[in-house]
Design a protein around this nucleic acid. Sequence first.
DNA 1: CGCACCTGCGTACAGTGTGCGCTATCGTGT
DNA 2: ACACGATAGCGCACACTGTACGCAGGTGCG
Lengths: 243, 243
Amino acid sequence: MPSDSKPVPSVWVRPRRQREQPVLSREHIVAEAVRLLDEEGLEALSMRRLGQRLGAGATSLYRHVASKDELIELVVDEVYGEMRVPDADGPAGWRSATTECAHSLRAMILRHPWIAAVLGQVGLASLGPNLVRQSSRMIALFEAAGFAPGEANRAMDTLIAYVIGMGTSEAAYLSLLARSGLSEREWLESLRPAAEAAVSDHPRIRDGFSPPEGDPAKVREENFGYGLDRVLDGLAVRLAATG
Amino acid sequence: MPSDSKPVPSVWVRPRRQREQPVLSREHIVAEAVRLLDEEGLEALSMRRLGQRLGAGATSLYRHVASKDELIELVVDEVYGEMRVPDADGPAGWRSATTECAHSLRAMILRHPWIAAVLGQVGLASLGPNLVRQSSRMIALFEAAGFAPGEANRAMDTLIAYVIGMGTSEAAYLSLLARSGLSEREWLESLRPAAEAAVSDHPRIRDGFSPPEGDPAKVREENFGYGLDRVLDGLAVRLAATG
DNA sequence: CGCACCTGCGTACAGTGTGCGCTATCGTGT
DNA sequence: ACACGATAGCGCACACTGTACGCAGGTGCG
């Protein structure tokens, strides 16, 4: 019985490869990636850490996913599926239906702030199943409202661009804040001097760093609603002019 | 004269440290970073490559810039300064002035497609001088149009959110395309089968992958203009209702 | 039984951001 | 004129990244 071989390749010690039922699969990987991203943010997502959380080696993931970029595409499509899009033949008018869409998309972005950074790389150009499904349902909404078939798509793009632009700003702000480790109030307080200097040079800038007028989250939601109403007003004008 | 010391630390061989005039400086670094990003895209930006292009070592940059993240903030503010914002007391009406802003911002994004990916990380939350200046000038535009002081800010946010959302999508699409190395026509052709499958399942989706109806860039610009008009219509409605 | 296949793993490589301590240069005060 | 402190740049080192490659073990089919 040789004791000089260090790793002792004995049958009894060998880890027996307990193939529990949670074998690796594309769905498992994507789901765990979303969880990791939600908990620790974008730069915490590495193949090694993800593998670790799944009880697997880093490179094992590559059996199910071609590359990290592809994984990110999958993850984007996954969360895009969380958006709620009402049925086009439902009882609600087009305005309230699209309003619900917009709020639901914003909520999704705020639940997963990391997509802000990721949308700029991968965009909505990839043809994931959820993206296709949701887009189709949204276009139906605009067609039911009375937009011509070709135009409904552009109307949807307009609305989505607004929501994504607004959500991106909010998400970037929030994850900056999260990375700082401060509470929102402390953060604003710490930026106070710089902000005051800026405001004094350019008096027109609204002082977003003043003593918080109520819940900051509430303020952000109202700002979002303001712009949303303007965008929908504009679409309504167009609808009235062509109908 | 010992010949065994390999690196020969002789005074005559020593590189004499020619301190040419292009010493490193924050401005130089930022400018070169923008050039590198424009030429080779976001993931080509590393401190080592940037230092190399400046004829400096990687870590030398840290004398002028605290971290790569800070460098990126600087770079964002730099290109944000490229946007053209007309004077508020100029001859043009508010609508044409803000239209010019929007097109100018979009043009900036398309000139520097990498900011799409970067805006999601750093956002417009940092208080760079160009950002402050441009925002102030834009708010002035909306106040001159008749928006109440507090509301002008929200109107601007609405417009900017739309432009950024739309620009982000375009930029993501374009840089995906650039990474593929194909021409736009080849790219569309290669996606044809997948797109057709998607369309046949969801007939409402406009077939954006059909034989190009004219210049694709033109089509994108028209789509952008469509949404822009809707957003400005909506703001005009609000203006008429409160004025 | 044998054979092909598929899944997961360990190793390895090139490349990343950046902390630390060294050297050479420059501007300034005496 | 000379010394001295500040500063700019550099090389090294560390921990970490994505992923190519080849191997080991299990599974299903002939």
